[in-house]
Design a protein around this nucleic acid. Sequence first.
DNA 1: TTGTAAGCGTTATCAT
DNA 2: ATGATAACGCTTACAA
Lengths: 338, 338
Amino acid sequence: MSLTIYDISEKAGVSIATVSRVLNGSTKVKESTRQKIMDIIDEFGYTPNSSARAMGLKSMKTIGILCADSSDIFLAKAVYFLEQNLQANGYESLLCCTGYNLDVRRNYINLILSKKVDGLILVGSNFIGSTEEENAYIRDCSEKVPVMILNASYHHENVYSILSDDVNSMYRATTDMINSGISDVLYLYNSTSYSGRKKLDGFRMAMESHKVKGYEDLILKVPEELTEMESIANYITNFAKEDHTFHGVIASDDQLGIAAVKYGQQNQISIPKDLSVIGYNNSILTGCCTPELTSIDNQLEAQTRSLVKTLIGVLSGQDMPQKTVFPGNLVRRKTTEF
Amino acid sequence: MSLTIYDISEKAGVSIATVSRVLNGSTKVKESTRQKIMDIIDEFGYTPNSSARAMGLKSMKTIGILCADSSDIFLAKAVYFLEQNLQANGYESLLCCTGYNLDVRRNYINLILSKKVDGLILVGSNFIGSTEEENAYIRDCSEKVPVMILNASYHHENVYSILSDDVNSMYRATTDMINSGISDVLYLYNSTSYSGRKKLDGFRMAMESHKVKGYEDLILKVPEELTEMESIANYITNFAKEDHTFHGVIASDDQLGIAAVKYGQQNQISIPKDLSVIGYNNSILTGCCTPELTSIDNQLEAQTRSLVKTLIGVLSGQDMPQKTVFPGNLVRRKTTEF
DNA sequence: TTGTAAGCGTTATCAT
DNA sequence: ATGATAACGCTTACAA
């Protein structure tokens, strides 16, 4: 059992209030008593009981991080950056992997709120539904603590959104591809989350504004059950066999992008000569295939830094922007020629 | 502000003790009063204050998860599984990414201990140094709470190790390769962590027991700074140019394995015909290259399940095995013919 | 500069 | 079956 301030006060022959003052760096304490107390702590050690502390301060200095699946390559990176930033600001991270089911989520959130976290971070756009009803739980949370959303946007009091401009990123990538002379491009996606919808919007907008005909026939939703790269590649092969031709692929994430590369390889299609491929997230996967995958970088690290900065600001009572949008940018590798 | 048991007791016209009893499911409470209290809770809502609770119970029902970098593909998966298992057992997870520096780690650990976590999980074999001195902090921790180590072994009271048998896995994989007729095999690694050392041991043992000569010349340490796949592939190419020939590669993780595949492709070496490659961890990366990577699976999920089970057992006062070892197994894909 | 004491929201041990 | 009340370890007015 570690010492308490009572033990220390006794040893030092002062009151617990004085010990507390020293511990909290209050200036109003004589240097000699401060020394005496510090000496005792140095000798016997002391780790504050943060539960007790939390009761006094009404704060655990802890932030709840919710994500569907922290082993997802994209979410894992986000969680990591967030934890680092929070740590640097004196906050700890309570991690909670909720899965994708809404009811399960609500339960987890209640649990985590009872831990008296000072704020909540929702990592991933899958937390935002398309109906007000689905998002009710977010409004509830926001009455207790500030809610930060990474990679999606939801407007409500005490809710702050940090995201990348998926519409624009996808619009520009698609435009680049069209301008390079490829207008028959397959759009590959499997998620209809907030950011999933935005990406598709960007693709459609580019196609529309460049007056490309018949692009809707080349929008392919890959079933979510298909997680193996090879299965996805086969799925694309089958799609192509149904008399669909395309000389470009834009994928809503790197995994699908890699699957497209695999499709090309399986069908002896030369990349990038006869098929250009663009992925999304600029993850570690981009380096795994040959040729290496061109991908859209969404500046995740900058986003997380901004998110934590905003959160810390909110917690200290400052006015903070409710929506911060980061531009994405195309990282050109070997699956494209432009 | 959410209700407290005081508010509820007032509304119900009973004492806080009774409310507490209802909340904790004590049997010794009349059904009618229980109902009255439940009704009030249903109407107004109630989220227990777990800091206060922790003070009474001397437990936060929280486990500290330490890992160097939760965005690492292997560690992320471990963290995810651990969180899920802990959640299922009524514990929350305080995540702490410590980096690889020892001093930084010690600080984090003190901090996390002050949060009164009920146990500590060290994820990744990089937490175990090779000297008693380096591991002193683990012994210190173990005096306060049970310490669980995933993927490494350290024997001490109140310390429990769950790991896969890296020596044997590597021994068997190497043996398989030798038996298939390939004895000039390049061993690729970049980490000298506990498990890194064990893997290398397994490789050496296999080489020794099959009386392969000169294998030491084909053990290649890739500089840790090299993180890009292509850089690693180039590094291998340069090594090969220094008059080293090999027809097999065994890598200490999938990333290095993929780099080896890339090396083959860059140098027009046919895989698996002229070069066999085996990776380690059986991660998502294995599906990203073509041909897909044969890899050693270390049963991470089973390990995490066992770890949490052991931890829960320890916390409830049971005697638990201090060391649990899981066998690994080779998952054959397309970079090997055997 | 220092001490006293109230308060934070629970749990748990007594009585009744 | 229920109620008082101490205890948990800390912060923070308010007094001295």
